[in-house]
Computed example of a mutant assay.
Amino acid sequence: MSKIRVLTGVTTTGIPHLGNYVGAIRPAIRAAAQDNVESFLFLANYHGIIKCHDPKMIAESTKAVAATWLACGLDTERTVFYRQSDVPEILELNWILTCITAKGLMNRAHAYKAAVDKNLEDKQDPDFEIEMGLYSYPILMTADIIMFNAHQVPVGRDQIQHVEMARDIAQRFNHRFGKNIFRLPEVVIDEQVELLVGLDGRKMSKSYGNTIELFLTPKQRQKAVNQIITNLKEPSVPKFKGESPIFEMYQAFATAAEYSEFERALNDGLAWGEAKKLLAAKIGAELEPLTDKYHDLIANPQQIEDILQAGAAKARAEARETLAQVKEAVGIKSLV
């Protein structure tokens, strides 16, 4: 059976929260377990330094993100799990691609255009405080993707443009040098992916300050859940979906039957406080079995490092072959 190669990168600029788990980690691990899928998953720490210039945060986030994926059940026998910076061939390919990428394509990148528009609104020079990492990171993302000839790249809708750019750059290279080295990747948007709401009802995001951490003690988890917004309806008064994020959050961790029972109880007047206790318990039932593994990994970074180095060895073996073809194509080769 031919396998579909799926590549996913995780930026190392924060500590994973429930929204990351529901929207990305859990579905990616389930997908990687399919027999027809060959999964590549990497920690995008070079992408991390585009926006985050706090070395401590980059290092801590890299460890926490790796530990989270491993604790949540990532099978490193089935998945090539590596840190971007451990595969220097990606950076070599990044430069070669930079040399054949049209500046006009980079000018159209959403992140760059948004930064320029913000500067113009503030009556600043269009490129005020815009650094080359922000400007050219779609090329690095292209190198990440096409180095391993991924068939599919699952992304959110805000990232579709980057996969389209990867296709454009790969096709440009193949055409210019007359070599069919790179596969054109396909973007994958999962319409069923759950976007978990946060404490305030908006999408759970660090930028909104409305997140709940993954690995908490039961007491800490209950304290966090208690901050979810509700209205002032008294116990015994019917409560309905749309009045609090509790409904959506419970649904993300429950079976259809369990959620129906929970919703019915609130419709019948269950107190908000009692509903929050049920929600904290439901989240805990799924995450508490993973918590000890997470903290064991955090306390033993050498174990994480060994896993990442083993993944990097697998990734580099393939990256060297691809890069050798690329360098041969552009004329960077031995004289004999």
Score class of each variant (00 low, 15 high):
Ser2Cys: 00
Ser2Arg: 11
Arg5Met: 00
Arg5Asn: 01
Val6Cys: 06
Val6Ser: 00
Thr11Leu: 02
Gly14Ala: 15
Gly19Val: 12
Ile25Cys: 01
Ile25Leu: 07
Ile29Asn: 02
Ala31Glu: 15
Asp35Leu: 06
Asp35Pro: 07
Asn36Ala: 11
Glu38Leu: 02
Ser39Tyr: 10
His47Cys: 02
Ile49Ala: 04
Lys51Leu: 10
Asp54Leu: 09
Met57Asp: 12
Ser61Phe: 07
Lys63Ile: 11
Ala64Val: 07
Asp75Gly: 03
Asp75Glu: 03
Asp75Val: 02
Val80Pro: 01
Arg83Asn: 10
Ile90Pro: 05
Trp95Asn: 04
Trp95Ala: 02
Thr98His: 11
Ala109Asp: 01
His110Ser: 12
His110Met: 12
Ala111Phe: 09
Ala114Met: 07
Asp117Phe: 10
Lys118Pro: 05
Glu121Met: 14
Asp127Leu: 14
Glu129His: 14
Met132Asp: 10
Tyr135Phe: 15
Leu140Pro: 02
Met141Pro: 05
Phe148Asn: 04
Val153Asp: 01
Val153Arg: 02
Gln159Met: 12
Gln161Asp: 09
Glu164Phe: 08
Ala170Cys: 13
Arg172His: 11
Arg172Trp: 09
Phe173Asn: 08
His175Arg: 13
Lys179Phe: 02
Phe182Trp: 10
Arg183Glu: 06
Val188His: 13
Val188Asp: 13
Glu191Trp: 03
Glu191Pro: 01
Gln192Arg: 10
Leu195Ser: 11
Leu196Val: 05
Val197Trp: 00
Ser205Gln: 09
Tyr208Met: 11
Asn210Gln: 14
Ile212Gly: 00
Ile212Lys: 00
Glu213Phe: 03
Thr217Ala: 07
Arg221Leu: 15
Val225Lys: 04
Asn226Tyr: 00
Ile229Lys: 13
Lys233Tyr: 12
Glu234Pro: 07
Val237Phe: 11
Val237Ala: 14
Phe240Gln: 14
Pro245Asn: 03
Ile246Gly: 02
Ala254Trp: 01
Ala256Glu: 15
Glu258Arg: 01
Phe262Gly: 01
Phe262Gln: 02
Lys277Arg: 13
Lys282Phe: 08
Lys282Val: 10
Leu290Trp: 00
Asp292Asn: 05
Ile304Phe: 05
Asp306Phe: 08
Arg320Pro: 04
Gly331Asn: 10
Leu335Cys: 09
